[in-house]
Simulated assay, not measured.
Amino acid sequence: MYETDGEDCAMIFAVRHIFYTAVILASFAAAMPVNVPANAHDLRTEMRLVTGDAFPPFADRAYDGGGIVTEVVRRSFDAMGYQNVSVIWRSWLKGFEMTVEGRVDGTFPYAQTPSRKKLVLFSEPITNLSAYGWFARKHEKYDDNIDLLGKSLCLPLGHGELGHTGKLLASGQAKRVSPPDMKTCFKLLAAGRVDSVVSPVPEALNAMSEAGLSPDDFDHIGQSLSNMPLYFVVGVNHPLAQRIIKDFNAGLATLRESGELEKILSQARY
C-alpha cells in the first residue's frame, strides 16, 4: 500500500475516465448494426446457375454450349463483366426449388405463371415458345384444342400450366398427369394411358427419340395451346436478386443491339 500526491491522483482519474469512456464507446459500437456493402459478395467473381436437361433447343447437355438459352444467359453475363459463370444440371423441379431457396443465383428458361411470380423475379423475355397438344395416330385424332375437354393431359413435373392448358386444368375441364420427364409422357401416350401430351415441337421430337418411338406415330393439333415468353429468373429472397436481374437485362440488351442475340437464337428452329 502506498500513498499518492494530488498530481498522481489527477492522472489516475484522467486515465480511468479515458478507460471507461473507451469501454462505453466500444459497447455502443458492438450494439450498432454493421452496414455491409451490397457488393460485398462479388458475383462477378463467381456465379452459380442451374437449369434442367432435355429441353431442346433451349437447355440440353447434348447441344453445343448446353442449348441456345444457356448460351444466351452465359453471353449476357459475359457482356456485363462476369468472369466465372458456372451452370449445373438438375431436374426441373429440383433446380427451381434450389433457386427459390437461394442455393443458386438463378435458373432458366422459365415462363411466367401466377404462382411462380410469388417466388422468383423475372428478367426481360429472352425468346418465345409455342406448345401443342400431341396425340397418337393409332388412338384418337384431335383437330382443335376444344377436343381436349375432358381429356388427360401429360405434362412432366416442373413444367408450368401455361396458356389454354392452364385454363383447362384450373377449371377441371382436363386432368393433369405428371411423370418425371417428357419421354415418359410419350410412352404413356403410345400406350393409350393418357389422351394428349403438351409439348413444344423440339422437346416432343427429342422425347420420342429418347423413348425409342417414331415421330410418324404422333401428330399435334395445329393451333397452339400456349405461346409464352421464356425468362431467366432469380429467387425473390436472394439478397442480390434485383442486381442480378438488372445486370442480366443489361447484358441481354447488349446482345440484342449487337445482333448477337438473333444470331444465337437462329441456330435452331422452334
Rank of each mutant, 00 (worst) to 15 (best):
D217K: 04
G65Y: 12
Y63F: 14
N227R: 07
T113F: 14
F96S: 05
D144T: 10
G133K: 00
G102E: 11
I18L: 12
F122N: 00
L153R: 00
R61M: 15
Q242M: 05
L188D: 03
C185T: 04
S123D: 06
P239H: 08
G192W: 13
S178N: 06
P109Y: 04
F135Y: 13
A62K: 10
V234R: 00
S115Y: 13
F186Q: 03
H238K: 03
P37I: 12
L205S: 01
H17T: 14
E203T: 15
Q223I: 11
P180C: 03
F58S: 02
G150H: 10
T165E: 15
I88M: 13
T107W: 05
P125W: 14
A59M: 11
V236T: 14
A191Y: 04
D247M: 08
G102P: 07
A29D: 13
D64P: 03
N84K: 11
S76H: 02
G95P: 02
W92P: 00
A14E: 10
L119V: 07
G95I: 11
E210Y: 06
D217A: 13
L149Q: 06
T107I: 09
G160D: 14
L168S: 01
E262H: 06
P33M: 14
H41P: 01
M98P: 02
T127W: 02
V233Q: 02
F218Y: 03
G235C: 08
L255W: 09
D217S: 09
M1E: 06
L129S: 01
K187V: 08
I12T: 05
I68N: 01
I12W: 06
V87R: 00
F19I: 12
S178D: 10
N227M: 09
A268L: 07
N227T: 10
K167R: 11
I12N: 03
T70N: 11
D60E: 08
G95V: 12
P33Q: 13
P57C: 14
Y270M: 08
R74H: 12
V198I: 15
R116Y: 15
T21N: 12
D147N: 10
K187M: 12
I24Y: 12
T21F: 15
N35R: 14
D144R: 07
D219I: 04
V197D: 04
I244H: 01
D60T: 01
T99C: 13
A79I: 08
G133N: 00
F135M: 02
T45R: 14
S123A: 09
A250E: 09
M182R: 00
V87H: 02
K175A: 09
L49Y: 04
V69Q: 01
S209H: 12
E210N: 06
T4G: 01
